[in-house]
Design a protein around this nucleic acid. Structure first.
Lengths: 142, 142
DNA sequence: TGACAAATGCAACCGTGTTGCAATATCATA
DNA sequence: TATGATATTGCAACACGGTTGCATTTGTCA
């Protein structure tokens, strides 16, 4: 983990961007939590818990920035707000708790979704991606 | 179609609800368009196009009402806003245009998603449903 | 027709997200 | 180490989808 976060920091510097205190903290949050996509509001809270008060504009801009750099990816979990997770370059899906809005990643072994698409009438859309979200109650709320 | 809309109206009356001008128009909009989920804003526009100016609060409340009555269902199309479509009692998915936000329904023949779930680690969630959304460019925007 | 409850409109509000602009902090270079 | 260019940040104001409380209107049934 530690070498990965250093690699990400080096990449940013190499591309002419700065390693501010806030940016480093945000990287730490994402790299220390690799299984749960978080929203802007949640990130703001986590930074506050780390004794760092950050303006919401900065949070939104930083999420967009890290996303553009390919370090994190935007995730649609079906709860109407943008969420982000560390870019793991692996295909997976998400499960959302309808009561507390907790989100986790799930992996479907031998997922045949892509193949099934070949036989589907996609209304002449040019498909660039898909999102599969499961809904229900998490371990705490069930 | 005409007998279905009359049946829906009868059901509402039987349950003690009123058939107002607005409610009847909204039913017409949904029953005359059975393949595209629409948002509150879009419904408001369609009503306006039918020479009926409706307050947005009424639109939101009516959508929630018809949803609670099981006449329409809430649909998550992945664009961050609630959409609704006629309740067709059949399992299907949706495709969203990333440029113009158009949404259409798609059906996967012999969808094995449900069966695949048996072998998936769902993090101890109790699953009640799922949403599969495809993203891309529609016929007009591609 | 009248009365009661359902439905509506209005205004004000909330949460998420965005934009313009001024102030600040980072970092390469001198 | 000091400095200057500019990347980053904060602030205020806004946009948009959605909700709530309350007063008014409307549909229905006796």
């Amino acid at each position: 983990m530690i070498q990965q976060i250093l690699a990400a920091q080096a990449t940013l510097k190499d591309n002419g961007f700065r390693l501010t205190k806030i940016r480093k903290l945000i990287l730490e949050v994402f790299f220390s939590n690799t299984t749960v996509p978080i929203s802007a509001t949640e990130l703001k809270s986590q930074l506050f818990a780390l004794d760092t008060k950050v303006n919401k504009t900065t949070v939104y801009r930083e999420l967009e920035f890290l996303s553009a750099q390919g370090i994190i990816v935007e995730v649609n979990a079906g709860d109407g707000k943008k969420r982000y997770e560390l870019n793991c370059y692996c295909h997976h899906h998400h499960v959302l708790c309808l009561r507390c809005s907790a989100v986790e990643c799930v992996t479907i072994d031998n997922c045949t979704l892509e193949e099934q698409l070949n036989s589907v009438d996609l209304k002449n859309f040019k498909i660039t991606g898909h999102a599969l979200n499961f809904f229900g109650l998490c371990a705490q709320c069930r």
